[in-house]
Amino acid sequence: MTEHDTKPDTKPVTKVVCWLLLGLVRLLVGAHARWLGCAPEPVQRLYFANHTSHLDALVIMAALPPPLRRVTHPVAALDYWGRSRLHRFLAADCLGAVLVDRSLRPAGDPLRPLAHILADGRSLLIFPEGTRGSGEIGPFRAGLFHLARRFPTVELVPVYLENLQRVLPKGSPLIVPLICTLRFGAPLALEPDESKPAFLARARAALAGLTTAAEAGEDRAR
């Protein structure tokens, strides 16, 4: 696949569209961030989130403070966000998204554009389930593990999106404006000789630990 220019477009039109888009998202679903396990600091991070709707990346970008948003690039599926000029404009130009090919046998290394961003010192936002789920967090794909191994200094931050599958569920074009909360968990790191399945399971558990049910349990324990 081709290398994309991943620096956000700085044309005024793009900036205005981006600002309107993020404003609309905040108006519709709130996109309120709760920094539970880490602070909104400008350190290099690999955010990984549960994937429940087409709005996910937009909502997380809307919730990040502008200095963090400027250096963070969401990863989006080429087959969806690259299918028309408008989609590509919104994803790549407005949000600075990296479009990846998620077909079974993509030509070349699918992680290369992501590694490129991290090598450049910028942050990434990925959805390790690879596809939209219906509320339950699915099994993680291996990409998170490979990136964690190649970039050991990058903080791996789980981000749990609450309610978004109710806002725009898979298979429906209708948006219901419920309030969406984002929970940012504590960063985790790959242990020296941790196996791939063990690490992916631990990362998934860290994300699952940010659900309301987990929080309610914590409240009771206090």
Binding site: P169, L174, V176, L178, I179
Partner: peptide, 26 residues
């Protein structure tokens, strides 16, 4: 009304099958 409705529905568990009904409400 809009803010009250979304507050109420945000905290009220519904299922995927209610999505269209919720859309009509709003």
């Amino acid at each position: 009304s809009l803010m009250a409705l979304r507050e109420f529905l945000t905290l009220t568990p519904t299922r995927l099958g209610d999505h269209r009904a919720l859309f009509w409400c709003f």
